[in-house]
Amino acid sequence: MSVTLDIRLKRANKVYHEGEVVAGVILLVCKEALQHHGISLSMEGLVNLQLSSKSVGVFEAFYNSVKPIQLISSNIEVAKAGKVPAGKTEIPFEFPLITKGNKVLYETYHGVFVNIQYTLRCDMKRSLLAKDLSRNCEFIVHCQPQKAKVVPTPVNFTITPDTLQNIRERSSLPKFLIRGHLDATNCVISQPLTGEVVVENSDVAIKSIELQLVRVETCGCAEGYARDATEIQNIQIAEGDVCHGLAIPIYMVFPRLFTCPTLETTNFKVEFEVNIVIVLHDDHLITENFPLKLCRV
């Protein structure tokens, strides 16, 4: 006998804000009437922190000494023990998205060492002979828009062999002059990162120009804190020997779920940076780093 249990949210994009009501239906489809011992639905918001093995040893990392932080949790009984009729049954539900006390609902974020996730979980208890059924459904929380207005402040940059750090032999470097600007480093998360880069001149042909979006996650714990930078995505904006003196647009959409407004709490931090990476034809790699501050308006 096949039974399917599903949670359907009313909003197609599954995005909710604090104070709103998460509404939807529990959908049960079965061919025959179904006996059960009660259906319950729970909502939970958690921050999972993981320490990287780099910062704390393998053992601790595995042991995961940092406890998850609960942001929200509630539970309701949808149906008492009884029978579900054959066919399609829809049970509507609503959860107010309100925190207890002074807790804040952080925005959903899927990272490497920090994960902020909100889930709905539906459980159906059944008799001993049949397996219990359960279903998870993630919904997305966007934090309240920031009140202060974001004033974009353009950041100009110039890259020449002289501006570089971390190089071994400055003398072997070819000559180049690359200029450009980012329209802002305090970015609105729903809008792309924009700017321009101009290859004014370069002795060696350019192979590629890329934008590397990096997350910097910091987890604090009893032993101190761990800070790790990892790549989210790498977007090529120029390929091959581009025309000199011509402005090439910098354009990158912030990926959903993998980015969130820059977050700083007592226990953990999520920050973002962008690297402009220039690969020369002789495989020299030139990187210019810009910390970003993301926010939602």
Binding site: I237, P249, Y251
Partner: peptide, 15 residues
């Protein structure tokens, strides 16, 4: 216009 501008990033003139 955005895509038009992005084409500037293609180095090979024929491409």
């Amino acid at each position: 216009p955005r895509l038009t501008a992005m084409i500037r990033g293609i180095g090979d003139p024929l491409v």
